[in-house]
Design a protein around this nucleic acid. Structure first.
Length: 235
RNA sequence: AUGAGCGCUUUGCCA
């Protein structure tokens, strides 16, 4: 079964879902991680609808599910962007008595953020007993993606008060937030601070964010200048 | 002997 599961997982990772499914069907019995591998495979290759169908199929096949299943399902719901499905999953996992570990809590948070349900996302965020850098990044990104850059920056300040060290991803989330809310000065400030205050060297991701920041607010020349002077080759 | 790990899982630009 372990080998079979590894195979399903390998096929799924390589976007060979048909092979994964064939392998899955040939196994004498299917346990939860095996189902999960298949569901995760569909999510990974962007076929969230099929992932959700697989979840239905788990029910009809009489299989149970665990926390990992819900992490996958929540991710699929976030990709689809319709909060009803996600809410249903949320209700179900609460009824099942699952407590939020970081994976589950962060996945739930991200699902609501991706669906634009920021008040629900925030509720989940504050209800987490333990938060890691991913939790903070996810809520910052959530506000940023929904044109609430000012709140995103406030949450970042809050993060520092909680003595959580930001990472490279924190800054892509922040810079995107500034970009989408036209916070050009703040974005440049943050970009400067990442290496000077936080010791994080900007990568191509961050340079791209800055170019987007300028371009989106109509500063084409600034964007061009930045593009030409940045120390790595454009992607 | 006890506990843990060994198969599945969460955050990154533009579009």
């Amino acid at each position: 079964l372990f080998v079979g599961s590894a195979l399903v997982n390998m096929y799924a990772e390589c976007n060979l879902l048909a092979d994964a499914r064939h392998c899955f069907n040939r196994l004498s019995f299917q346990d939860i991680p095996l189902w999960n591998a298949l569901v995760a495979g569909y999510v990974a290759c962007g076929d969230s609808q099929e992932a959700l169908k697989m979840y239905e199929l788990m029910h009809t096949a009489g299989a149970s599910s665990n926390e990992v299943t819900f992490v996958c399902i929540l991710k699929a719901c976030g990709s689809v962007g319709v909060s009803e499905k996600g809410q249903a999953a949320h209700t179900e996992l609460t009824q099942r008595g699952f407590t939020y570990n970081l994976y589950l809590g962060n996945a739930l948070l991200d699902m609501y953020a991706k669906c634009g349900s920021l008040s629900e996302a925030w509720e989940v965020f504050v209800s987490l007993e333990v938060r890691d850098v991913i939790s903070w990044n996810t809520i910052i990104k959530g506000y940023g993606a929904n044109h609430n850059g000012i709140v995103a920056v406030q949450v970042f300040e809050d993060m520092q008060k909680h003595r959580v060290q930001p990472d490279a991803i924190t800054f892509t989330c922040l810079l995107t937030a500034c970009s989408r809310s036209s916070l050009v000065i703040k974005g440049q400030e943050l970009f400067k601070s990442m290496s000077e205050e936080f010791g994080i060297e900007p990568s191509i991701h961050h340079y791209n964010c800055i170019i987007d920041l300028h371009a989106r607010s109509g500063r084409i020349h600034e964007a061009q200048k930045f593009l030409q002077t940045m120390p790595c080759s454009p992607s």
